[in-house]
Write a protein that binds this DNA or RNA. Structure first.
Lengths: 153, 153
DNA sequence: TATTGTTATACTCTATAACTATA
DNA sequence: TATAGTTATAGAGTATAACAATA
């Protein structure tokens, strides 16, 4: 159920972001850049939970949309330092407001205390499921619980 | 977050089902058939929430695995009546046990009352998001809330 | 030798259209 | 005319491997 719900939420969130010319992944990347400007693409990929190959095209898209800049990284000549443009600084709060309204609409008939509890529990379940945003992907696999042996049932 | 969690849960559930030679979608179809034997592929597709085209290959897979049979539908010569084989009747409870253990492992450090509450809330959110398992897909679109106008933020 | 960004490739999923046989 | 099952095809998304530049 969580999987199906997640897929539909992502689909609907994509519709909400369409007027901005963004997909959910773009939004996630922008939020991460805003939290800490000048990160490398590799760092962003780790934080968002995608492979660095995917980050290339995400940053490509955002650069074409005029929302981010690839600058020279001050410490590592291999890496880019990714920064928001002024257009992004203007756009991001509006997109975040749409996201907040969307979440509110989903939980519209849910008691606010229950809403908060659900998000807190899901956050803890996410960690248990190996979804640790701050963790390097290479470390995630070892945290995955091993599948159950079907013969033992 | 729900979207990312759902994707990872689906991925991990797939690993748990791999020893059975099943993917999550197959498991969902089997459960639906068990609930009401002799349904048409179209009915199954509606219940599971996929297009009837997709159900064709799902039933193909299950038939190859020897888990379901396509019999003549007693009332409609266009349709098939899908039934579980004895192998499926033997396998399904074991797969359901694996699923239950997997869910338990995800919520292992969550208070049981909170666990139940979360699932209940998510069920209600799912309905609000247009995820109504018993509803025909054609009716779902009209239940989707309209995207927010970004200019109003 | 390892890492960053990049490109290419393949594989899975999904969405759409069209066809047939029935209703 | 509409529906059930089927097939084919195109597109998005994802995963893997390889490469040049740099650490």
């Amino acid at each position: 159920m969580i999987s199906q719900l997640g897929a539909r939420i992502s689909q609907q969130f994509a519709e909400h972001l369409q007027p901005f010319g963004l997909r959910p992944a773009h939004f996630g990347v922008l939020v991460r850049i805003a939290r800490d400007e000048g990160q490398s693409q590799q760092q962003l990929a780790d934080h968002v939970g995608v492979h660095r190959n995917v980050m290339v095209s995400l940053v490509d898209d955002l650069e074409e949309r005029g929302l981010v800049e690839r600058r020279r990284h001050p410490e590592d000549r291999r890496a880019h330092a990714i920064h928001l443009t002024e257009a992004a600084v203007e756009l991001l709060p509006r997109a975040e407001e749409v996201a907040a309204q969307f979440e509110a609409s989903l939980f519209a008939d849910i008691d606010p205390a229950d809403h908060a509890l659900v998000l807190d529990v899901l956050r803890r379940v996410s960690e248990r499921a190996g979804l640790v945003p701050e963790l390097h992907p290479a470390l995630i696999d070892s945290r995955r619980p091993a599948p159950v042996d079907p013969e033992s049932c």
